[in-house]
Amino acid sequence: MEQMDKHRREDFVQELFGSIAKRYDLLNAVFTLNQDSYWRNFAVNKANIKTGQSILDICCGTGKLSIALAEKAGLQGQIVGLDFSENMLRQAEDNIKKTPYSQRITLMQGNALHLPFPDHSFDCTTIGFGLRNVADIPKTLSEMYRVTKSGGTVLSVELSKPSAPILKQLYFLYFEHLLPLIGNLGFHKNQPYYNLPASLRTLPEHSVIQNIFLQVGLKQITSYQLTGGIAAVHLGIK
């Protein structure tokens, strides 16, 4: 039954993000007041990426984090962006073509729970705003750990839950009511943005994710809460 639930969730998430791919970047910027760019750049700057490193960006979506990683890794760096939504990958391809990094970013379709790479393949493995949508967070982080080289970094940047009571209430009011209302404009059926708040409700607390990093074998865990706890960055070393 658990496996069936995971498959259903994967199918649902794939259909959901396939339907919003074209407007995903614009609405992310609007909904976060462009803070998503700050969160991504903060995470990349904390990842200790060196020139020429190989990096895997899973759940790469429209490629924004992959692009930031490519900029940090320099001319000899190689980035692989993996996502299981074909429409999101198409959007990522369009975004990457507008940058100087198209020769250094390879896009491929794949599943975060079963990464198609040998052990110890990458210097750094990242996931940006995708952890809350995977069917199994510990399995995803375990796979990220597996394909990362010894001494390499595993990084997640994700939405989080503010701890201050008033901010938390305002945040969920916004996320569960105003965001879906705006996001679903133009959709006549299957209004996808009404399904997104559930992914945040079920996302483990910041401290729980930190513990999962430890459980999969990562060391020297560092975490940061950004913008009043609305987003969080977690890093661990293999």
Rank of each mutant, 00 (worst) to 15 (best):
L203F: 15
V157N: 03
L181H: 02
N45G: 13
T106E: 12
N48D: 10
F172H: 09
P192V: 11
Q76N: 14
A68L: 10
H234F: 00
G183Q: 06
V134W: 04
N87F: 11
M1W: 11
Y145Q: 13
E93T: 10
L141M: 12
T140H: 03
D11W: 08
C60D: 12
P180G: 04
A73Q: 10
Y174D: 12
L75H: 09
M1C: 14
A70R: 01
L113Y: 04
F122K: 02
V80D: 01
V134D: 04
E205T: 05
I137D: 02
N34S: 13
L27Q: 10
H188R: 15
M108D: 02
A73P: 08
I20H: 00
Q76W: 06
T32W: 00
G110A: 10
F84H: 15
N41L: 14
D123V: 01
T202Y: 11
L82E: 04
F175Q: 02
S54M: 08
A198L: 13
T148Q: 05
L107Q: 03
T125L: 11
T125A: 14
A68H: 00
T51P: 05
Q35W: 01
P197K: 05
N211Q: 11
A112F: 05
A135M: 09
K46M: 09
Q78S: 11
I237H: 11
G183K: 00
F42T: 05
F117M: 06
S163F: 10
G186W: 03
H188Q: 12
E143T: 08
L185K: 01
I237E: 13
S19A: 15
I55Y: 02
V147C: 07
G229N: 07
F42W: 14
S19Q: 15
P116C: 01
L159Y: 07
F117S: 00
P165K: 08
D36A: 08
Q220W: 02
G110S: 10
S142L: 12
